[in-house]
Design a protein around this nucleic acid. Sequence first.
DNA 1: TATTTTATATGATTTAAGTCATAAAATGCA
DNA 2: TGCATTTTATGACTTAAATCATATAAAATA
Lengths: 198, 198
Amino acid sequence: MIAITLLEKYNGIIKNYKNGDLIFEEGNQPLYYYQIISGEVKMNNYNDEGKEFIQGIFYKNQCFGEPPLFIDQVYPANAVAVTDSELIVITKDKFLELLKNNSDISLAIIKNLSQRLYYKSVMAAEISSQDPEHRVLRLIDYSIEQLNFKKEEAGFLINFTRQQIGDLTGLRVETVIRAIKSLEKKGDLKIINRKVYR
Amino acid sequence: MIAITLLEKYNGIIKNYKNGDLIFEEGNQPLYYYQIISGEVKMNNYNDEGKEFIQGIFYKNQCFGEPPLFIDQVYPANAVAVTDSELIVITKDKFLELLKNNSDISLAIIKNLSQRLYYKSVMAAEISSQDPEHRVLRLIDYSIEQLNFKKEEAGFLINFTRQQIGDLTGLRVETVIRAIKSLEKKGDLKIINRKVYR
DNA sequence: TATTTTATATGATTTAAGTCATAAAATGCA
DNA sequence: TGCATTTTATGACTTAAATCATATAAAATA
């Protein structure tokens, strides 16, 4: 998103997180702008019964957790490193200052937020009113478009576990497994030693 | 959102829609920026079986349908007038020009998108993994916060039909009706001649 | 005002996804 | 290398919400 050199000019600090580390927690006041230098971060919630819902997974060069920064609300979800990750962090004040001085960044932020809102709109409609196979396939197609899944001979390698697909679509693992099997039978995707290709 | 006088400077045109009129359709190329002068607009999708999902309801002074404008994608949902409505519309080019010349508007857009993303995040987690009563109550509480529901002696009047609540939460009317009844029994809300108060 | 349409309401039944149990690969790690 | 954990897999069963049917009240409209 934002050039690291620019972030460093605004007192950017490099922070390292181990796989599983909590970066921020639902309900906390947002204080920083976070951008991924390397690694992978998910934002998630847990419902009353402890079931996880993954809001999104973020990769290299992406930022996350800005919306509450702009609207002075607490975080609606947790951020957790899903691999060892290196982040660059600047304070809210510095971030707003950076924005003010760099109008092109504003447009980049607008585009990024728009993209995420688009994803949420599509998935909201899917999750609320489509059958499991439809939901899984839509998530896969959207992820191929947006994330950098590798294209191999068999097709795009879907780099998600069945559990992650479940947590992103609001389905249980078993349901995802059965949906994927059924989609394979219909020829919509391939399973090659347990990996999913589309 | 944006002052009407300013929109008029950028060739803003007033358009009138009757209750039920389609403003734009899922799958179409976005060409305009839309802002509500008076009336009420919903954005919705229909699933394969024709079940409606309401992405959001928008009121006076709010804009809608900008995200695809920024990211050059087709509309992910329809926009439909739910009351007779007066909108002001400017072309995409003029809108981007307006943004470039008014950096304070950029921040307003960022805040607006952030607010909507926040709503989607909260509702996504709710819809995917909470029971009907929880979903209904969260929608109601969120809507009280965000929309201008009137505070009366009995509490905030929830200005939604049961059907609308169902379409916003992905539940069927009957389920919403039963959830509301049950929430009333628990004292979480009031029903006074069929109207819901919280 | 009468009539149609929309919204709320409730009971009975169905069904799809969740839950539970169990197992075997695959992967991580000590 | 061996052991523990995670991931994928499958069958049996349960259950919560959807579906269906029907009714009545309220609102819209002719």
